[in-house]
């Protein structure tokens, strides 16, 4: 009879399993952190909460998957996607966001809702709303600390956190980053001192969308891509809120908190409450510290 002699499930050392779990959580948290960093960057420069981050990510994931499926090498497909992301960011900024500067926060929020639902439609029209799998860049497994890890998972975790580091480094160590921080602290003073606010905010959007594109691509490497996957944007937003909307450190800690809480509930408790765990965590934190773990208290008054 078929399958009679097949091994009945894996028997692996406990240590390997825990390292594997760690890689998984780090990969997921890295993707959330990447998206959340983009949300924080846009918030810091323009005080707009971007609810479309997940949509941007998955749109780019669909795009790169379409290019790869059409036979392009990933070395061509990835830059093309980043370029499309940059154009998308510029369009969003100049066509919408720039026109509502100075409006109440309500307007900015609704504008991103509008963009989000528009992008969702574009996704369905352009890619048919189907569920797709992307060919992974790496296959096989890597041995790390005595554990057999999926090469893709390692790649996702490493790449995501590396990119988060790059974005934070841009903000902290380059002159553009200095302008961005100046804009965050005081827009009017920064403008007076010759910072081109227009360009800085546009650049923030470009970086945010590129981060989303990278996050979407990495998501497609380890999971399926479908219109339902736009929910990773909600997880990223929750991460940013837990950490504090204006803090990169907060976004990183928040992403870890969201990923760990989701994972922990799914693995050890009733799986059906997995989606609620990060939400509950966020509510608790926002009730105690409305400005988030690392945010500035004054931000709550602004938006």
């Amino acid at each position: 009879m078929l399958g009679a002699g097949l091994p009945a499930g894996p028997v692996r050392p406990a240590q390997g399993a825990s390292i594997q779990q760690l890689t998984t959580v780090l990969g997921v948290a890295g993707i959330y952190a990447l998206l959340a960093t983009g949300i924080v960057l846009v918030y810091r420069t323009s005080r707009v909460v971007n609810l479309a981050q997940g949509h941007l990510a998955i749109l780019c994931a669909f795009f790169v998957a379409a290019l790869l499926a059409a036979g392009y090498h990933w070395a061509a497909a990835l830059p093309a996607t980043i370029a499309v992301g940059c154009v998308l960011a510029a369009v969003i900024y100049f066509a919408v966001m720039r026109r509502i500067v100075g409006e109440p926060p309500f307007v900015g929020l609704m504008a991103t809702v509008g963009i989000a639902i528009l992008l969702r439609g574009v996704m369905v029209v352009a890619f048919g709303g189907v569920t797709i799998t992307t060919q992974p860049l790496l296959s096989g497994s890597v041995s790390l600390f005595g554990a057999d890890l999926s090469a893709t998972h390692v790649l996702v975790a490493v790449a995501a956190w590396l990119l988060v580091g790059v974005i934070v480094a841009i903000n902290h160590f380059t002159s553009i980053g200095l302008f961005m921080r100046a804009t965050t602290d005081n827009v009017i003073l920064a403008a007076q001192r010759g910072v081109n606010i227009d360009r800085i905010v546009c650049l923030a959007w470009v970086i945010a969308v590129c981060a989303a594109a990278a996050g979407g691509f990495l998501h497609s490497q380890r999971a399926l891509v479908s219109t339902a996957a736009i929910l990773i944007g909600v997880s990223a937003l929750i991460a940013a809120l837990i950490g504090g909307m204006d803090s990169f450190r907060g976004a990183v800690i928040g992403a870890l908190a969201v990923a760990v809480s989701e994972y922990f509930v799914l693995l050890h408790f009733e799986a059906r409450y997995a989606d609620l765990a990060p939400v509950a965590l966020m509510l608790v934190i926002l009730t105690i510290r409305p400005w988030g773990l690392f945010g500035t208290p004054e931000e709550v008054e602004r938006v």
Binding site: T24, V28, R222, A223, A228, L231, E262, L266, A274, D275
Partner: peptide
């Protein structure tokens, strides 16, 4: 609505 199957 789950999209992240890692833990599953």
């Amino acid at each position: 609505a789950k999209v992240e199957y890692g833990a599953i």
